[in-house]
Structure formats: C-alpha cells, structure tokens
Write a protein that binds this DNA or RNA. Structure first.
Length: 683
DNA sequence: GCAAGGTC
C-alpha cells in the first residue's frame, strides 16, 4: 500500500484538511497530532508544519562580506526562540520516513510552496514526480475537497520563485547590514546596525517625515471669534477661515469688536449617515487597539495570538476585512449571549430580521476577518481582556445599522462679516450602541434658534496662531502606511517597526527618528540607494512572477543580484573608513544623549554648576554618576535586570530624573533614580 | 552581530 505524507502549513490547517477529506484517525507523535486517512490503495498521513521549519543560513564561517553562500538549515538550530519547532520537525521527519509520495498542502502562495518543498526536499529529497501540490484558496470543506480531487504536480515555478526571494533578501539585507557595521568597526566602535528590503524603505519614510518636521518653519495666521454665552462662532474668511495678514486681521477686528448684537442669517442643516465600521483584519485591530488603549501593534499581535491559541478568536494574521456567513453568525452570537457581559448586545443583534455584516475591500485567500468564537474567556490579563472586548464589540458593530447624525451650521452676521458656529449631534445611535465605549464622535449641540433671531454678543477674540508641523507617524499609522505601500506582510510589519526601535534608529511614540536613524538613511542614500526604495520590493515581485512563469531562471536572477551587490559593496568597502567616521560621530552623540538623565541635585545644593547625572557602564554593570566626579560623588544604583533608558521627566515627588526600565518578560516601568525617594515608600 | 518570512 502506498503511503502519502500531506503537509499542512500549520496545525490548525492540518486538522481542517483531515476534516474535509474524509474519515480519519489521529495519531500523536512527539506531542504533535497527525491525521491518518486510509483507503483501499492509499494511506494518507496529514502532518503539520509550523510555518518555516528551515531558514537560510550562511555556509561559510565569519562575518566578512559579501557573503553569497547560503543553505537551508533547521530553524531551531540557530534561533532559541524557535525551540517549539523542534517537535514538529522531528514529527515531520518520522512521518516522512514512511512516505512513498508527498503532497504539499501548505497555503497556496510563494511562502507555502517554500515551506512544503523545503521539508520534502531536505528530509527526503525524492524525485519530483513523487511530489504533488494541493492548491486551495479557502479552507472550506468544498474547496479543500476540490483541491484534493485536482492535485497538481510539483510546483517548481512557485518554489523557485519563493526560494529566490528569500535568497535576494538575505543577500541584500545581511551584506549591507554587515557593511554598515564593518564601517563603524573600522573606526573602533561597535554597534549593531541593520537594514534590508523592508527596513530600509520603512526607515526612509520615517526619516523623510522627520526632516520635514525639523525643517518646518511656522507661519503666523489669525482667526477671529464671536463669543456668545453658549458657543463660539468663527469668522468665515477665505477658503479656510485663516487670515494671513496681520493688518487685515486687525482691521476686521476693529470693525466688529464693539458690536453688541448679531443676527442669525442662515441655518444649514445636514442629515447624514455614519456607517458602521468594517470587520478587523490584523492591521485594523492594531490601529484600533493603539488609539483606544495605546497598546503597541506588536503587543496587540501577540495578545491576539494568545486569544487565538485559547480558542477565543479566529486566526488573527489575516488581511481580510470580510466576514462571510459561513463562519456561522447565529452560532457565535448565541455563544456570546451566554456570556453575562455580552448578553444584551448579542440579543440586540439577534433581533434583526436578517443578519449581514459590513465588508471592507481587503480579502485574504486563507482566512476571514478576525471574529470572536464565543467561547468563554477566563484568566485573561487586563490587556488581553481589553483587546478581546474590542474584538467582540467590533463583531457586534459590523451587524449594526448606520447611525443617523445631523450637522448644523449657523451663520451669524455682524456688519458685513459672517461668523459660523457648527454642531454635530447623533439622532439615532444604532450601531453606536453596539460598539460603546469605543465610539469616538463629537457631540456638540447649539441652542435652538431661527433665522432672524437677534442675539447678544459677549465679545470678540482675535487669536494669533501658528501653522503646525506635519504630524509624526504613530506606530499604528506607520503599520498602516506599510500595508498601503505593500511593504512587509501582515505578520511582519509590527516586528519591523520594533526592530528599528531596537537599533536606536527611532524612539518614542509618536515616532521620532534619531540622528543615527537619519545618518543611516544618508549613508544608504549615498551608497546603496536601492535599499531605501519601495521599488525594490516591486522589482522583486516582478522577477518572482517571471520565474514562476518560466521566463527567467532562479539562477539567472540570483547571479544578477550577486553581480550588482558585488559592485556596490566593493565601492562601499573602498570607502569604509570614511563612511564609518560619519556614523561613529552620531553613534557617540546618541549614546551620550541616551545616557544623560538630568541635573544633579547634590551639585545644585552645594552650589556647583553644571553637574549632570548620567548612566555609567563599567565592568558589565551600570550605575548613575555625576559628570562632576570626583568633585561630586553622588551616585545611584540601577536595577540589575532590564535595560535602563533616560526620559525627559522629573520625579513629581522629589524632582530628580526619572528612568524607564525596559524588561523583556515582565512589565516595563518608570521610576525615580533615587532609591530613597519618598515616592517609593510603599514599594 | 546581520534579512524577511512563516508560526506556537
């Protein structure tokens, strides 16, 4: 009898495959569940991967560049964080030992082709005729069944394309990162630096904004307000009510300022609908969790993963903004109804005659948008509870009817000048009731007046204002921007941003680009400009498509990239020391700045000038000392665990500098540098 | 010590 091993991309999918394809028995091996389907002539073992089991690594030793010799190696061999992969790896190896033929049933995209093909190739290396590819675009029973009935041959085109993309990313990313670090090394400094196809353009987008903000010079403008006892009305002027000329503003103000009365000359009412929101995809959830709770996109992603693993929500790494009826609206609503906190809302939704949801434009072949399963949550942390509640309320809201809102613009005339007061109110709440407390709309009512009414004026204000610099990117806004630019994927965008923080290229939220971040962009602009442009991703995509179609070969594309990089990196190497010298200056300045905490109180009390507290590192430990040492011996100890960061805050109790201690596994915290500060009495 | 991509 023939034994076939079918590989699913992840455990959940392996289970769905089994359910769709027939009667199965389960067989747990090394803690991993496999599914066995037996027919008269064939035994199919469905075994799960967990995403990539193999990773590209350098074959040779050392940190020289350029490096072009790479091979696929088991992922847990080189990454501690991938320990959990080991049992899946071992299980796959055990199952594949028994196999005569193989089916790659990973997701139908380049990554899925690579994940499955690597497992088959590196664990068995059979003839290609013994490998089949199962192509499905949703995980529904009918789609899976159909895909299984129409298995195709080994998908060499997609596999080659995928492997080529990985190789190019390695070539560009690793080599240019090493070049940057080596340039700094030549100047006797050591700093982890990195860039790549996604990191580069991401940093560039942020740096452009930073430059725009730093170069920004505000313009003065004036606005004039009419003050009524219950509201303010703004002078209608030009296209946006701003007066750019001071004399003109003064002239108008003088004309109206002593008027005691005004007439209502127009009331414009506009009724409009405020549509319910669309279902969450990962980016949407990250944005909303950021604006509602100030939780970072990366944290939201990991919370969502936990909720998913606890069966509380559907698969979170989805691009989809659609919730098809197939997910079983009624069933989910029924389960939510049995949770005390959602009983009323679930009832409200279920009362509707027909259930349908709003839909966003984005789709995802493998998964619907994020929705709650209805299972009862227990033991959730505070933040997990918040994100879960947000997902549930959003699920309710997408079934809701549009809210009815009314905007009113009232025009008040004084002399020849019109002033306008605006209000917006909600007439029918509808979906607002399903999404509270997350509805963010302004509610401002005006008194009920009619055209022709004469009102008393309390006075007029002439306000001198300044134009504002462009807004910085928040973490969630940059994740959105990356999605729009097609940079990275749903699963990687948040961690790309995180990496830029870890490299000290960016800091804060909203995001500031550090001088180091700007210097990296400058350096790349001068020497490897390709790595700053989103076009590199587009070019890669086009090349992968032509490899897939057989118009170009993987070898040809890789060789070309190698030649290009050889040239660019050769030139870079010739100027290594000079390039590094500039980077080193900013690295030194940035380090000093990050270690600087604030003025030394001891020095202030003793009347010494300019004492500055800073973090001092010696022999692997660190403490806080004063720049006036040895004249000032003021020191404070620092915690042994976690990374200490300076802040620009002062302790509200004693006025000494506040530090921020960043911890990996536990919660990060802020505290006063002084261990004896009264703010710590109840610690 | 370096990428980007998948996932528990």
């Amino acid at each position: 009898m023939e034994t076939t091993v079918m590989i699913g991309e992840k455990p959940k999918v392996a289970s769905k495959l089994a359910n769709a394809l027939g009667n199965y028995s389960t067989k747990t091996n090394r803690g991993v569940k496999n599914y066995v389907i037996e027919t008269d002539e064939r035994r199919i073992i469905i075994a799960p991967a967990v995403g990539h089991i193999f990773n590209l690594e350098q074959i040779s030793e050392g940190w020289d560049y350029p490096v072009f010799d790479v091979e696929w190696r088991p992922i847990f061999e080189t990454s501690d964080s991938s320990d959990y992969v080991k049992k899946y790896y071992n299980n796959l190896r055990d199952q594949i030992e028994k196999a005569d033929t193989y089916i790659n049933a990973c997701d139908f995209d380049l990554e899925g082709s690579v994940i499955g093909a690597n497992i088959i190739k590196h664990m068995a290396d059979p003839d290609e005729e013994r490998i089949e590819r199962m192509k499905f675009s949703t995980l529904t029973q009918s789609d899976l069944q159909e895909a299984f009935d129409n298995l195709e041959g080994f998908d060499k085109g997609m596999t080659d394309a995928g492997i080529t993309r990985h190789t190019l990313d390695f070539y560009y990313g690793v080599n240019v990162s090493r070049a940057l670090m080596q340039a700094v090394r030549e100047n006797n400094r050591y700093k982890t630096l990195s860039t790549g196809r996604v990191q580069g353009p991401t940093l560039k987008i942020l740096a452009d904004k930073e430059r725009e903000i730093r170069a920004f010079e505000p313009d003065d403008y004036w606005e004039i307000f009419l003050k009524h006892s219950e509201f303010d009305a703004k002078l209608s002027y030009g296209s946006d009510d701003r007066i750019w000329d001071e004399d003109e503003a003064n002239g108008i103000f003088l004309t109206v300022k002593d008027e005691g009365r005004t007439e209502v000359t127009d009331i414009d009412i506009n009724n409009y609908s405020h549509n319910p929101p669309i279902p969450f995809n990962l980016t949407g959830l990250q944005s909303e969790a950021s604006s509602q709770f100030n939780i970072s996109p990366k944290k939201t992603q990991s919370i969502a993963q936990t909720l998913y693993e606890n069966s509380l929500i559907s698969y979170p790494r989805t691009e989809s903004q659609k919730l098809p009826p197939k997910i079983g609206y009624k069933d989910i609503l029924g389960k939510l109804k049995s949770q005390d906190s959602y009983e009323d809302l679930a009832k409200k939704v279920m009362k509707k005659d027909s259930l349908s949801t709003t839909q966003g434009k984005k789709k995802d072949d493998a998964h619907p948008a994020i929705y709650p399963t209805g299972e009862h949550p227990s033991g959730l942390s505070k933040q997990e509870r918040k994100v879960y509640d947000l997902i549930v309320k959003r699920f309710f809201a997408v079934f809701g009817k549009a809210a009815k809102r009314r905007s009113l613009t009232m025009t008040l005339t004084v002399e020849d000048y019109d002033f306008q007061a605006k209000s917006k109110i909600t007439v029918e709440r509808n979906w607002f009731d399903l999404y509270d407390p997350y509805v963010k709309v302004s509610e401002a009512a005006l008194p009920e007046l009619e055209v022709g009414d004469i009102l008393d004026v309390e006075g007029f204000d002439l306000e001198d204002k300044e134009t504002q610099p462009p807004q910085r990117y928040s973490q969630s806004r940059i994740v959105n921007k990356l999605e729009k630019e097609n940079l990275g994927t749903k699963a990687t965008r948040a961690s790309t941003i995180d990496r830029l923080y870890n490299r000290n290229y960016i800091e804060g939220d909203p995001i500031n680009v550090t001088d180091l971040g700007l210097a990296i962009v400058d350096t790349l602009e001068d020497h490897i400009p390709d790595l700053l442009s989103p076009d590199l991703t587009r070019e890669f995509e086009e090349k992968m498509e032509s490899i897939r179609q057989g118009e170009e070969t993987s070898e040809g594309v890789i060789e070309k990239a190698r030649e290009d990089l050889d040239k660019m990196l050769g030139k870079f190497k010739d100027q290594e020391k000079e390039i590094g010298a500039e980077l080193v200056n900013t690295i030194d300045d940035e380090r000093k700045r990050r270690r600087k905490l604030g003025p030394c109180h001891e020095c202030e009390e003793q009347g010494r000038e300019d004492g500055m507290l800073r973090i001092i590192k010696s022999k692997g430990s660190s403490f806080v000392g004063c720049s006036n040492y040895p004249d000032c011996e003021n020191t404070y100890p620092l915690p042994n665990t976690g990374k200490v960061n300076s802040t620009d805050q002062e302790c509200s109790t004693c006025g000494k500098p506040v530090i921020y201690v960043e911890r990996k596994k536990k919660k990060s915290y802020s505290m006063c540098v002084d261990p004896d500060c009264p703010s710590k009495d109840d610690w």
